[in-house]
């Protein structure tokens, strides 16, 4: 099986005045296409920085990233945006819906960016699939946290991404709602055959993925396959 994400000797250092702060270093790993991959580690271990770099949201200080067969270092900001639009989906801890757009409008933004003419039709189908068929024209502020995350899920899958990055997808939800959202995420992911890269604190959740990358102090402490199918 080919690898959809290849990370080689990645390092990210922030400079503040004369001080340098290395957030992650010596990071090398690969993610198999279609797999469910989790990154775990304590707060400040560099998980979010790593996710940002993998998705092309940030630039590494050194090292290379190959996403969907494209070396990110060769792309400018807009080319990266276009790649994300075509290949990548996102789910964030705090949902990150556009507050001025309705649920349906939020879901169809990636499709519309692709120039898809039947965006609304797809969007409605997706929202119905996540159980929000009756909330199409509600604004994020009119939805509960769980509902907002379900809209985010629908948006993440709307452009039929090859890879999905999820940053603590249940971090802002209660246990029961979180479990429902995770189940929905796994179901949608399985149905679409998308690669899922997920950051989580929750080891139980991580154990439900196929591979766990452990980070501590910005370095990989382990990268193991789990027994989960």
């Amino acid at each position: 099986m080919s690898n959809i994400l290849k990370i080689n000797d990645l390092e990210k250092t922030y400079t503040s005045g004369s001080k340098k702060l290395t957030v992650i270093s010596n990071i090398t790993f690969e993610v198999e296409t279609g797999s469910v991959f989790s990154i775990v580690g304590p707060s400040g271990s560099g998980k979010t920085t790593l996710l940002g770099l993998c998705a092309g949201l940030d630039y590494p200080s050194s090292g290379t990233i190959e996403l969907c067969g494209t070396p990110l270092q060769d792309l400018n900001e807009d080319e990266r945006a276009a790649l994300r639009n075509k290949e990548v989906g996102f789910i964030f801890q705090n949902f990150q819906l556009l507050p001025t757009l309705t649920a349906l409008e939020n879901v169809i933004v990636p499709l519309e960016l692709q120039g898809e003419k039947k965006a609304a039709q797809f969007g409605i189908a997706l929202l119905e699939k996540v159980g929000l068929g009756d909330r199409l024209h509600h604004y994020p502020s009119q939805l509960s946290g769980g509902e907002q995350q379900r809209v985010a899920l629908a948006r993440a899958f709307s452009n039929k991404p090859s890879i999905l990055f999820a940053d603590e997808p249940t971090g802002n939800l209660d246990e029961e709602t979180g479990e429902k959202v995770i189940q929905l995420l796994f179901d949608l992911n399985k149905e679409a055959g998308t690669t899922l890269v997920m950051i989580t604190h929750d080891l139980d959740l991580a154990n439900r993925t196929q591979q766990i990358l452990r980070l501590k102090g910005g370095k990989i402490t382990s990268n193991e396959k789990t027994s989960t199918i």
Binding site: L57, D78, A81, R84, F90, L97, L113
Partner: peptide, 11 residues
């Protein structure tokens, strides 16, 4: 968010 979803700077 829009940039994350693939919108360009110009857009």
């Amino acid at each position: 968010i829009l940039k994350c979803l693939g919108a360009s700077r110009k857009q």
